[in-house]
């Protein structure tokens, strides 16, 4: 089976700062991969580069065999990559239903077709507040809404940027269950994470990034076994 996402030699800059320096890794269909590393290591930038929100200076990004680097974000979204940003970024003045409708795209072959009703089954909280403006929801509810909104585009791959950051431990547990449920639906997920406990619970494989360079790729079990790597790059 060919890789779903294949990144190689990816370079990206913010102004003069060289954030990504030849990042490369791949992930298969139906896989959950955790991109791990400290703050500022390049996790978010990698996701933004895949999404076309940060223009890569060099390198290749292949999605389902197709090169996508340098394309517009909306085109990348339309071929089946969904993006859930770190700071949630819901449309605070739009209601839950309206937030979902912004993300809505036509059904896609070979992936689950999401409707508001199906999403409300997955996120029962959202179903109880369909007309509530996004700004009047709690942080955990907002995080669920961003994920639901992205799913409305029927993506094949979801980029989840730090889904557990700033959430109460009890909500983090719920988030882990949600990710596993999505994996059960056959969705591929690339998530960035600092929390090893969380990543260990949901991911099949991990990649560690440090100062814009990938230092480790392997299964979650391999990472758990390798204390030296964890101590060096994750400082736990």
């Amino acid at each position: 089976m060919s890789a779903l996402l294949e990144i190689s030699g990816l370079d990206a800059y913010y102004g003069r700062a060289h954030i990504l320096q030849g990042v490369g890794f791949g992930m298969g269909r139906g896989e959950v991969l955790a991109l791990m590393g400290r703050n500022g290591a390049g996790k978010s930038t990698t996701m933004k580069a895949v999404m076309g929100l940060v223009p890569p200076a060099r390198g290749e990004i292949r999605f389902d065999g197709q090169r996508i680097e340098g394309r517009e974000p909306f085109e990348i979204a339309r071929i089946g990559i969904g993006y859930v940003p770190e700071e949630r970024r819901i449309f605070s003045e739009l209601s839950v239903m309206e937030n979902l409708s912004v993300g809505q795209r036509p059904p896609r072959e070979g992936v689950p077709h999401w409707t508001p009703e199906r999403l409300f089954a997955l996120f029962p909280n959202l179903g109880r507040m369909r007309d509530r403006p996004g700004g009047a929801m709690s942080g955990g509810e907002q995080q669920m809404l961003t994920i639901a909104r992205t799913l409305m585009g029927n993506p094949r791959l979801v980029l989840l940027d730090e889904p557990s950051e700033g959430l109460a431990p009890v909500i983090v547990e719920e988030m882990a269950k949600t990710i596993l449920a999505l994996k059960g639906e056959g969705l591929s997920i690339l998530l960035s994470e600092q929390n090893l406990h969380f990543a260990g619970n949901v991911a099949d494989r991990a990649a560690i990034i440090e100062k814009g360079i990938i230092r480790f790729t392997g299964t979650m079990a391999e990472l758990k076994a390798d204390e030296a790597i964890r101590a060096q790059y994750l400082s736990v």
Binding site: S164, A168, P169, V170, E173, A176, N195, H197, F198, N201
Partner: peptide, 13 residues
């Protein structure tokens, strides 16, 4: 524990 901490499985607690 019920409203905030949870079981501690993912939080490192």
């Amino acid at each position: 524990r019920a409203v905030y901490l949870g079981s501690g499985a993912t939080s490192g607690g």
